Amino acid sequence: MSANNEWLQRYSDSLLGVFGTPSLVIERGDGCYVWDVDGNRYLDLVGGIAVNALGHGHPAVVSAISKQAAEAVHISNFFTSRAQVQLAERLLGVAGAPAGSKVFFGNSGAEAIEAAIKLSRRTGRTGIVAAEGAFHGRTTGALALTHKAAYREPFEPLLPGVVHVPYDDVDALRAAVADDVAAVILEPLQGEAGVLSPAPDFLRAAREITTAAGALLIIDEIQTGIGRTGAWFGFQHAGIQPDAITVAKGLGGGVPIGALVTFGEEVSGLLTAGQHGSTFGGNPLASAAGLAMLDTIEERGLLEHAESTGRHLEQAVAAAGIPHVTGVRGQGLLRAITLDRPVSAAVAAAAREGGFIVNPVAPEALRLAPPLIVSADELDSFVQALPTFVEGALTS
């Protein structure tokens, strides 16, 4: 028995099966590559699902968390730390938030969504409008906003008052935002639905509709934020100012952290002392990691790099003319390679055998969310191998 299979057997004997059976047991990573316990190397084009924005073992992150771990890993929120304050200030800066904006730190994207739900309740209204195809998390409040029936139905009844409307449908959104709606919660690009982008004016229309109705516009940047789309946040491409955003994934580079960012004094005043909290939220270790991530992304010009390498991937796939590959969609380095038949799982399995990690996010789409440091040559190595993987999936 291989070391990989032995550890997977121990996994199945000891962990709840909520993730199914993992395909690999990863031993270590370096840059854009990971190695399994059998010593096989893979180009990681998923990046922990848009988490490892600086890849694996980046010296800036390693240095920051090592230094902080030697000083203080955790303090209670009876106190604060310089790292926590500095990270909040940096987040507000890269978000372009106006005076009076604030940050709440949690440990995950789902926690950030839960904070956003409580923020919306403080308006005095209870209705929430989300989108079909949306994924906002698996805690019970976040699950009410998530659209996929298979995720929701085993745990119903969930939070009442949530309505889902077709994504990128301005008329449906306008019709749904009634006087009882506290908030509209949207992703600027739907990652879990298959990397779907709305029309350029969709978020602008959502801003106009919510403003007119007196409802909050909350943008879920958990997967799209921290440079993933070629801007710090996906909403910035639309030139709007939301009332709040949720952030996680790439913010800590793998150290658990999430955040709710509220825009402006009025919205920031909705949650007051004692109305929300988190034991580990924004602790010194996570905050130090977040600071290292933001500083390094800025210093290395990785927003521009994400935009240019994402465009390079799109052009390379088009130029390759691969049978049964219909194109590339998405933005920056959150992309889906689309297929003309539902064989993505088989293609992803063939790619893994060939040394590449991609995600079959939908039956006819492969999601790529590689580290923002990925090179054009590394992406080209996958594109060059892709015809073999597709052919293998079709003949298996």
Rank of each mutant, 00 (worst) to 15 (best):
T279N: 08
P370C: 05
L119W: 09
V267C: 06
F356A: 07
G330P: 04
T338R: 08
A316G: 04
G239E: 11
G321E: 12
T338Q: 04
P198I: 09
I49L: 10
R367E: 04
P363H: 06
Y167F: 15
W232M: 11
L313M: 05
L372H: 07
P284Y: 11
D44A: 04
V62C: 01
I357P: 04
T21M: 07
T388F: 03
E299Q: 15
P157V: 08
T80N: 10
R82H: 10
V347I: 11
Y33M: 05
E89S: 15
K102P: 01
G230H: 14
V317K: 06
Q384W: 01
R90L: 13
E314C: 07
A175Y: 04
L216Q: 05
L119A: 06
A64K: 00
I226Q: 01
G96F: 07
T224Y: 01
A88E: 13
N77Q: 11
I219H: 13
R329E: 00
V347D: 02
E266D: 15
A88W: 03
F78H: 08
A97Y: 05
D295G: 10
F235A: 02
I245S: 01
L87Y: 09
F280I: 11
L251Y: 12
P323G: 08
G31Y: 08
I297R: 02
L216I: 13
Q331A: 07
C32V: 12
N4G: 00
E299H: 14
A376S: 06
P342Q: 08
G100T: 08
P59L: 08
F79P: 00
A178P: 03
N107W: 06
I257H: 04
S2Q: 11
A213V: 11
A72Q: 11
A142C: 13
D377F: 03
Y167M: 03
G327A: 11
G106W: 02
H237A: 15
G47C: 05
G93Y: 10
L294V: 15
A64E: 05
A53T: 14
L189R: 12
R125P: 02
V195E: 14
T296R: 12
S108Q: 08
V34Q: 02
S101A: 05
P160S: 10
F263R: 00
P363E: 09
H276P: 00
E71Y: 06
L158F: 14
I75M: 05
G258D: 14
R300V: 02
S308T: 07
R174I: 06
E299C: 02
D36N: 04
I26E: 00
L339S: 06
V184I: 08
R367L: 14
T246I: 04
L285E: 12
H164K: 09
G250P: 12
Y33I: 00
T21Y: 00
L368E: 06
E304L: 04
A205W: 11
V325I: 14
F104C: 02
T211M: 12
N52F: 13
G106E: 09
V46F: 05
L158E: 12
D380G: 03
T272K: 15
D340E: 12
H324Y: 11
A238S: 14
Y151S: 13
W232L: 12
H312P: 02
Q68M: 15
L54P: 01
E304V: 08
V177W: 02
G29C: 05
P98R: 06
S81K: 01
E221L: 14
L8F: 02
A336S: 08
L216N: 10
A50W: 01
